[in-house]
Amino acid sequence: MDRLARLLTATRGRGRMDWTDWASYLYLVLGTLLMLGPVVWLALSSLKSPSGLIEFPPTLLPQEQVRVAVPTYPAPLPLYRITEGDHAGQTLAEVRKIGLQATMVDPAAPETPIRVPIDARTKVMRLHAAWDNYGDLLQKFDFGRYLWNSVFITTVATLITLLLNSMAAFALSKYRFAGRDPVFLLMLATLMIPPTIILVPNYLIAAVLGLTDNPWGVIWPAVATPTGVFLLRQYMLTLPDDLLEAARMDNASEWRIYWRIVLPLSKPALAVLAIFSVMWRWNEFLWPMVVLGRSESFTLPLALNSFQGELTTQWNYLLAMTVVTLVPVTVIFALLQRHITQGIASAGVK
């Protein structure tokens, strides 16, 4: 028990690695495999052709069978390596398959057909990435529209969120006015009202305002985030009032003080909120599913969901679409990892 405790408390292995260090690394490496492995597996799979996807057991990397052009045969023929019998070790091309026997030829001497049992040979594979999966998304599906819907909603909602939340945070942190504290408490209270609870009435309100099947139906209900107001207010409280008074002496209007002084100085907090907002809007699912009924107005997650629900799921396209959906988030995370983790640790919100 004491040893286990050492594993959990020691903060420094003095010099040499002891077993607790080994155990820690083992845990972390296994954990990392479990966390990232499925994502990597998905990305690799998305490059497989439909025939590669139904391979069982699946191969790690995307592959396809090698085909060669053989004289006198109009189309390229698939290559096999013969494992048993007279021709063991040779690489032959298949002409046709009848029952358990295949007619094959040596590509170097295509005149003589050779008959080989089909369990006495293995396919010759080579690495091949089926980029068509991605290319076809744009042609065969309305993917461009879904992507645009998602990008539009994410960008516009984030800009409006930053503007409205920072205005409110500015007043709540820098002005004394009657009703300020009740307003702040009211906004904080909405942190505790999960959107799932007001699903039904929000749908009514969206319908009355003509926002259903409309990207603004996703944008407007989402932009007044209490988290954002809270985050920005806490940051703006740390800006010295002297700066505002100096600007007042400098004949700046209150609006100018807000956008020339306070906003530029709140950049770090605005950045955190911008990242949060992008993540929220890009990943949002339940509310868009309720408010966006027609498929033309679908966002990427909705398109993914409806696509995977179809009877004959075309996994190659679905996987490619999933990868496209997770790439922006992954890139943002890779670039801003430190900001995001610190922002979340300090704000305690997601």
Partner: peptide, 24 residues
Amino acid sequence: LGWLFVGPNLAIFAVFTFLPIIVD
């Protein structure tokens, strides 16, 4: 003036959060 800054945010709260609770 503070109300002018808080106003837009508060209005959206009112329409999409407070009002729905009552309607609920």
